[in-house]
Amino acid sequence: MGASVVPIAVFTVFWGVIGIVCPIFAPKGPNRGIIQVVLMLTAATCWLFWLCAYMAQMNPLIGPRLDNDTLIWMAHAWGNPYKQ
């Protein structure tokens, strides 16, 4: 599995709309600035968290730990010769 441009673009547009477009429609009042900042910070942090989680899947630090019996069965099922 490799990185794809489509999910990155879709989530960037989604969180961009939340962080850039939604603050424009914040209700008028004494707390409008706070609501706008909250929307922008929420969008930025959620996008960054999603990006880190997505990129961590590209090259995981820890791989699956399999028993020797499982490896032998996988080699047999996939038609690969198992050499001891």
Rank of each mutant, 00 (worst) to 15 (best):
W73L: 11
V37F: 06
W47I: 06
M74D: 10
G16V: 08
P7A: 14
T12V: 10
H76D: 06
T12H: 04
A77D: 10
I35P: 00
M55I: 13
A3W: 00
G79F: 05
F14N: 03
M74F: 06
G79N: 07
V37I: 14
P30R: 00
G79Q: 04
C22Y: 09
F25S: 13
P23W: 00
W50V: 15
V5Q: 09
D67T: 14
L39K: 09
K28R: 15
V38H: 00
Y82N: 08
T42L: 15
A53T: 04
A9G: 11
W15N: 09
T12F: 04
T70W: 06
N80L: 08
F14I: 01
V13G: 05
A9C: 04
I18R: 14
L66Q: 01
I35V: 15
L48Q: 09
A53F: 03
Q57W: 02
L71G: 01
A56S: 14
V10A: 11
L66V: 02
W50D: 15
S4G: 03
M58D: 07
W73N: 10
G33T: 00
T12P: 02
Q84I: 04
W78H: 01
V17E: 01
A56L: 11
P64M: 10
W15S: 06
L41R: 11
V38L: 15
C46T: 12
L39H: 05
T70C: 06
Q57N: 14
N59Y: 07
S4F: 02
M1T: 03
N80E: 08
M1K: 12
T45K: 04
L39V: 00
V38C: 13
I35D: 01
L51C: 11
V17F: 07
H76P: 00
A26Q: 04
I20F: 12
L39S: 06
D69L: 03
L51M: 14
C22H: 06
A56I: 07
I8G: 01
G29K: 09
L41M: 14
I35S: 05
T42V: 03
N59Q: 08
A9F: 10
Q36W: 01
C52H: 08
A77N: 11
Q57L: 12
A75W: 00
N80M: 13
M55W: 10
Q57F: 03
V6A: 07
C22D: 07
Y82M: 10
W47S: 15
N59E: 08
W47L: 15
P27N: 08
S4Y: 05
V37L: 11
G33N: 12
G29C: 12
